[in-house]
Amino acid sequence: MDKLINDFSVGLFFWQSLLFIALILLLKKFAWGPILTAVEEREDGIKDALEAAEKAKAEMQALNADNERILAEARIERDVLLKEAREMKDKIVNEAKDQANTEADKILISAKEQINNEKMKAITELKNQVADMSIDIAEKILKSELSDKNKQNELVAEALKLTK
């Protein structure tokens, strides 16, 4: 202990205290203040950025969930629409088929009728024509047959023979 007290140097104590207090005050003004403020600002910045990122992430998630929901809804809607469309298509096709069938039947019937009519017409016409032609032919034959006296006689004889 005596050694400690003997070794104590007032000058060193004075200089140390003076310089050290000056150092604290100078550094406080020119170094620690700016450094700590800068570091704090940076940390706040990082914190804010992190929070913003977190927020954005949450928003993104909400958005994703929304999207998912919308997508699911859309899918259901699409399915419904498709189903409806399919049904409609089937209906339309069926209707069209039915209609076509009936139409075709109608056409067929009318065609048959027409054909029949035409046939009848043609047959009658043919009959008439054949009748006309036979009369013409008969006339011509008769004319030629009757132009010769012999033949006329013969024919009469023959006709008489037949009628007998």
């Binding site: 000058g11 004075f14 310089l19 550094l27 170094a31 620690w32 700016p34 450094i35 800068a38």
Partner: peptide
């Protein structure tokens, strides 16, 4: 009463200047 600038006081001064320069430069870099 001895207020001399002894060897130790010289080094206190050197450290004083060193820290002053070092940390003010660091503060400026921010």
């Amino acid at each position: 009463i001895d207020f001399s600038i002894t060897k130790n006081v010289t080094f206190i001064m050197i450290v004083f200047l060193m820290m002053l320069i070092m940390f003010t430069r660091m503060a400026k870099s921010y």
